[in-house]
Design a protein around this nucleic acid. Structure first.
Lengths: 351, 351
DNA sequence: AAAATGGTTGCATACGTATGCAACCGTGAT
DNA sequence: ATCACGGTTGCATACGTATGCAACCATTTT
């Protein structure tokens, strides 16, 4: 099973290897007749140029590395699909990595860099500024998606989680809720931390000092159990802000099926993300929509700009979320949300 | 920004380039002292071996191509995550492609092969035997996941959709349902076709000739609308088999919130897949569990065997699904399902 | 002491493509 | 007819690593 190379094609077409190469290089200096001869010979032999050899020669691979924490987390598949298809459309390939529970991102980076990726998108995982610099030094600019590094030494695109947390605090207080609780996401995820911080800060600023905090981990089960614990207390909360929709679903099911309560009559529940299921009548969840599409666009835009100019100073782009008002929470009527991003949907054009 | 190569390291360490190469090749013939010298020099220079150059030299890339129809389809993210992590653990990388709505798999294959992948997993998309042979000829064995090619000329791992369809037919008839309907998945997906075929064939074999078929496309919205149409008929069905869980969720919501019916008192609903949400109390869906974990294991196993022996005759592996009995359907008590695969969960070890 | 053995090392080359450079060709201008 | 010029082509080399082969060394065997 001998591999067919450009030399074989050249021989058959009666030209030099250079000419074969040029026939496959758009914009190269080659006559139409030569190109036709070459392409015909190539087809006859079943020749496909080797991207590996080309990469070695040109010093770039056209490969973008994507490092994703957990692919199964809500809306990550959506992000991944949009990324991949946009990159494909831009003539680039995606080398995908997922950090297993026990592994650090830094170990993976070693591998990623060995494959000489042209650039790198890291989703829902952080890297140190030093590692980012190391990537730059190896010629691969990095953009963080949904994470950022304080001091802004790394390119990053992120939801404004703090501001969104503050918004929810305002809304719940404005609607007259008295006993307010928060169900956390994964303990030290920056998204969770920021949402909590904005929420608690704003509550405190408005003189509401007691907020019960239940631990969670961005799963349905955690939301269910946390809500059950909350709703079985004697000082049962009348409003629960969940750090994610998926936990909010668990919380609603706990309220209804484990505690026999009504939502929002007995307790208001607010989520975060606006997953497609949030619109299903079973939940009809009031939630903060993460501006995924805008984030994806911003990330690709930033990445492509950095591919051109790797040494430009890092940018950090913060995009606001927006409230999507449905039926799971009592909220003031007068509030109107600023225009939200499009919802997650197959047809959305990101690039 | 000069790239640091093995030659630079060799110079600093006072050895030959070959020795540097060997220091990074497990099992190569090199003394402990030399290896240490090299590794130290490499660390000092920030050297990382180039996987590209290595690939060119060794004639294999350690890259597996993964072609996935829609990443956002139910349980695909799960499959992808398991694949990626298992491949990573086996020291291989994943080049991921997703077929956009308008593109054919065959065009993508061209690209995939240019990157000289060592092997190829294709999920929820089919390729012709000719293309599979072409891949083999280029040194990349192919395994289809969740699809197969008739005539069994391509390696494939698949749920036994026909048999599962027959099972559901039996169960619904045994429970005494009279007006039975089927909500389809994506029109010409083989999974949809096979489920329908098994279901209808078995109904017919048992003398039940009338089954209303509503079109669908594997989405919540389609399930919702299809069920609404069904349930507004004067000869309202008393049982609906949905080609997927996600459609079943839509169907249940339509029954409850659009038609004011009770499930399963007024209508039995059965799904397919056993998504995590099927176990949530809001749905509590009776469904056929797709044996994803077994399928993933079988696929990886088959792939790894073919990487060793690319020319072995193709295998087609069919894995049975199992009924997961919950509360959305009236079914005979006596039926006990054979042992099911583990449910989809983060902790499941696939490799 | 000589020879055989096994472990290390370096040399030279292969892997497949891209591209700078010089050579070449034909065309139109002078 | 000569020259300049732009478009094509081939030659030669670079890209960074792996590896067969021969040379080398230290150790053990005879």
């Amino acid at each position: 099973m001998k591999r067919v190379t450009s030399i074989d094609v050249a021989r058959l077409a009666g030209v030099s290897q250079s000419t074969v190469s040029r026939a496959f290089t758009p914009g190269a200096s080659i006559s139409e007749t030569a190109r036709r001869k070459v392409l015909q010979a190539a087809a006859q032999l079943g020749y496909k140029p080797s991207a590996i050899a080309r990469s070695l020669s040109t010093q770039h691979t056209n490969i973008i590395g994507i490092v994703m924490g957990r692919i199964t987390s809500p809306f990550h598949p959506y992000v991944l699909e949009k990324f991949i298809q946009a990159l494909q459309a831009a003539g680039r390939q995606s080398l995908l990595f997922s950090t297993p529970p026990d592994q650090e991102v830094d170990d993976l980076l070693e591998l990623v860099l060995q494959y000489r990726v042209d650039g790198l998108v890291i989703t829902s995982a952080t890297i140190s500024s030093e590692m980012a610099d190391e990537c730059i030094r190896h010629g691969a600019p990095v953009v963080l998606f949904n994470r950022y590094v304080l001091g802004s030494s790394v390119n990053a695109v992120c939801t404004d989680n703090v501001e969104a947390g503050r918004l929810v605090a305002n809304l719940l207080l404005d609607a007259g809720h008295k006993r307010i609780a928060f169900i956390e996401g994964k303990a030290n995820a920056s998204t969770n931390l920021d949402r909590r911080k904005g929420f608690l800060d704003r509550l405190r600023e408005r003189g509401h000092l007691s907020c019960i905090i239940e631990p969670g981990d961005y799963t349905y089960e955690a939301g269910f159990e946390a809500a059950r614990r909350l709703l079985e207390r004697k000082d049962r909360p009348d409003a629960i802000f969940c750090a994610s929709d998926i936990e909010a679903f668990g919380a609603m099911d706990a309220a209804r099926y484990a505690c026999g309560l009504s939502v929002p009559e007995d307790v208001s529940i607010i989520g975060f993300d606006d997953l497609p299921a949030a619109a299903w009548p079973s939940y009809n969840l009031t939630t903060i929509r993460t501006p995924v599409n805008r984030m994806i666009r911003a990330t690709l835009d930033l990445l492509f700009r950095r591919l051109e100019e790797p040494d430009a100073p890092p940018e950090m782009i913060l995009i606001p979320g927006a409230l999507i008002k449905r039926e799971s929470a009592r909220l003031p009527d007068e509030y109107v949300s600023p225009p939200a991003d499009e919802p997650m949907a197959a047809g959305v054009e990101v690039w």
